[in-house]
Design a protein around this nucleic acid. Structure first.
Lengths: 184, 184
DNA sequence: TCACCCATGTAAGGGGTTACATGATTGC
DNA sequence: GCAATCATGTAACCCCTTACATGGGTGA
C-alpha cells in the first residue's frame, strides 16, 4: 500500500459519506473542508481514475437523462485504506498567512500604517466568520451523536474569533505605543 | 511592476532588516516566518537572481577567507516594492490541517478512536508550543518600540494554545457522548 | 580529525490552480 | 429563452520540496 496522496484522503473521506460523482465531491469539498483542505478538478478526476485502478474505488455509469454521469463508491479496500489513514499518527499542518508576514515586516512602515495592517487582518478574519456563519445557519443542528463536520465548523469559527480579537488587541497596543513615542 | 512572487515577499522583507546571503535568508526564515511562510533554497537562489535582474536587489561578492559569498541588499526600488506590497490590501490565507480533516471524517471510526484523533491534534499543538517557547526564550525582550517579529511569535503561541485547549474540550465532549451512547 | 556550520546552486518530481472545451438539464 | 447548475475532463503553468553536488571554515 503506497501512501495516499492529499486528494486521495479527501476523496476517500467524501465517498465514505455516500456515493458521489467527481463533480459532487468537488461541491462537497467547496462547502466544507475547503477552508483547511482544498481540492480542484485537476486533482479529483485523475485521482479517481488512479484510485479505481488500485481498487480503492469503484464506479458505475448512471446517466441522468441524456447527461453522462459516473458515480463512485468505496470498495472494502477503500474503506480499509481510509481507516488506516485516519489511524496514522503523522498529520501535516501548513499555513500561509500573508497578513502575518506583512506584520512581521511592519517596521518598514510608519506606526499608523502598521496599525492599518493589523486591522486589515482583523477584517479578513471577520469576513471569514461571516462566511462560516452562513454555512452554520444552513446546516441542520442534529443532536444525539457527535456531528464531526459541525465540530470542524465550530473549530473554524472559534479560531477566527480568537484571531480577530487578537488583532484588535494588537492594533490597540501598537496605537498606544505610537502615541507614547509621539509625545517624546 | 509585475506582482511579487511569494518568495520575493519574504526575501525583500528579510533584506530590509539587513544585507544577507541566500543562505542567511534561509536561516532567518527557518527560525521565524517558517511557521506561516516557508521558503526553500530551490526558491531563494533563483529568485535572488530575478530580483537583481529587475533591479529590486543588488549584490556584491564578499568572500570570507577562501569561501565565496554573495551578500544581497535592497535597492531603493526594492524598498519601494516592499512598501507597496505591505500596503496592498489583498492577503492570501491558506491552511492545510490534516488533523482537522481526519476529525471531519472521524465518523468512520469508533468513538474511542475519534477521541484519540483529537488528542493527537492536541499533542501536535503542544509540540508546536514547545518549539515556539524555545524560540521565545532565545529572543531578547526589548522594550520601547513594538517588536513585530516578537508580536508574530506571540500570535503563534496564543493560536496554538487556543487550538490545544479546544482539542481538549472537544475530546471530553466526544468521550461524554460515547459514554452516554454506551449506556443506552 | 571530525562534526558542524557556512555557502551556492541545480535537477527532478510532485502538488496544485486556472482556464478552457463541451454539453445536458432545470427552473424562472 | 436564459441563467444557473450538473457533469467530465485536459493542458499549461506555477509553486515548492527534496535531494544531491561541492567545498571552505571553525572549534572541540
Amino acid at each position: 500500500m503506497t501512501e495516499l496522496s492529499s486528494v486521495a484522503k479527501v476523496i476517500l473521506g467524501a465517498l465514505q459519506l455516500g456515493p458521489r460523482t467527481g463533480y459532487g465531491i468537488k461541491r462537497m469539498v467547496d462547502r466544507s473542508t475547503r477552508f483547511f483542505w482544498a481540492a480542484s478538478y485537476g486533482q479529483i478526476y485523475p485521482e479517481l481514475r488512479r484510485l479505481e485502478e488500485t481498487g480503492l474505488v469503484e464506479s458505475a455509469s448512471e446517466p441522468r437523462g441524456g447527461r453522462p454521469r459516473r458515480v463512485h463508491r468505496l470498495t472494502p479496500a477503500g474503506r480499509a485504506a481510509l481507516r488506516d489513514w485516519l489511524r496514522s499518527d503523522a498529520s501535516t499542518h501548513e499555513v500561509r498567512d500573508e497578513g502575518l508576514l506583512k506584520l512581521f515586516f511592519a517596521s518598514a512602515l510608519p506606526p499608523s500604517e502598521a496599525v492599518e495592517l493589523v486591522r486589515a487582518k482583523e477584517r479578513g478574519h471577520r469576513r471569514m466568520l461571516e462566511r462560516l456563519g452562513v454555512i452554520e445557519a444552513g446546516v441542520p443542528r442534529r443532536d444525539g451523536r457527535v456531528d464531526f463536520p459541525r465540530l470542524c465548523l465550530e473549530y473554524g469559527i472559534g479560531l477566527n474569533e480568537w484571531a480577530a480579537e487578537w488583532c484588535a488587541r494588537a492594533a490597540e497596543r501598537i496605537e498606544a505605543n505610537a502615541r507614547k513615542e509621539a509625545r517624546k
